[in-house]
Design a protein around this nucleic acid. Structure first.
Length: 255
DNA sequence: GCGACAG
DNA sequence: ATCTTGTCGC
């Protein structure tokens, strides 16, 4: 896929901070996800190896079947060490190579980290949304910014997270009695839609399939490439059909 | 000055 | 991100 080049990536923390504040106003908080979502992507980075290089992975899943259809990998030096608030400048430089080699164009991207729930309202999900121009969602396992008070224990429960008086995200319980994930807007999506997409990817697990498989791919446990149109393609088409069917019957119960 | 701090 | 042990529930 073609990416927008907005600025240099290997910059100092001070430059990164200035870029974040100047890019944050470009983020769209409006839902622009169409009804015809066929592909959802997840991205992740491995921890650095002994030479200090990381492996970036992007995995494109069919929707609603959630079967992997394309896996792309890239290796390189992180743009920065891990510094809270600057994760995108660490991970995205290497992720760019993987994203550019993508044949499929995802309709939604789910990032492993924050979107708006960030000190300057510009987490990695926002950054990925801008450079890909694809609707993006932040789904983090822990909090960077924001507080919430009460969250019911049932799956699907959510609570607004507030930082400096602004609602920056949601604590979302994806499974009953497990710690929530923290969802925020990345780009071209609203918060409620973002939560629905995360839930739709969770198949009864705590984390979305996108993050799970991207994590496996970054760890080198998934073969890269376009899954062949025969067995894998038929498999994912079958599970898409099955998933559509079960969505239809579930909706039928409420009509 | 101190604490908090995505991956 | 990593590491370890114990506990709970199906």
């Amino acid at each position: 896929m073609k990416l927008q080049s907005l600025h240099p990536w290997y910059v100092s923390v001070e430059e990164a901070k200035a870029l974040q504040t100047s890019l944050a106003p470009m983020v769209s908080h409006t839902n622009e996800i169409t009804g015809n979502v066929g592909h959802i992507a997840g991205v992740d980075i491995s921890p650095p190896n002994d030479e200090g290089t990381v492996r970036a992975a992007v995995v494109v899943l069919s929707y609603p079947g959630l079967q992997p259809e394309e896996v792309r990998l890239a290796e390189g030096k992180p743009g920065l060490p891990y510094i809270p608030g600057f994760l995108s400048f660490r991970e995205v430089p290497v992720l760019i190579d993987a994203l550019e080699s993508l044949e499929l164009t995802p309709d939604v991207i789910i990032a492993d980290g924050q979107g708006l729930a960030h000190p300057r309202r510009f987490g990695i999900a926002c950054h990925l949304g801008l450079i890909t121009d694809v609707p993006a969602i932040g789904c983090a396992k822990s909090i960077l910014r924001g507080r919430y008070d009460r969250l019911d224990s049932g799956a699907g429960s959510r609570a607004e997270m507030v930082d400096r008086g602004e609602v920056v995200g949601l604590a979302l319980r994806t499974r009953t009695d497990v710690s929530p994930v923290y969802v925020s807007i990345g780009h071209k999506v609203d918060l409620d839609s973002a939560a629905e997409w995360v839930l739709a990817c969770c198949k009864g697990r705590r984390l979305p399939e996108t993050t799970r498989l991207a994590h496996q791919a970054a760890a080198g446990r998934l073969p890269s490439g376009r899954l062949s149109a025969d067995e894998a393609g038929r498999k994912s088409k079958d599970s898409d059909d099955q998933a559509r069917e079960s969505i239809a019957t579930q909706q039928g119960k409420f009509l």
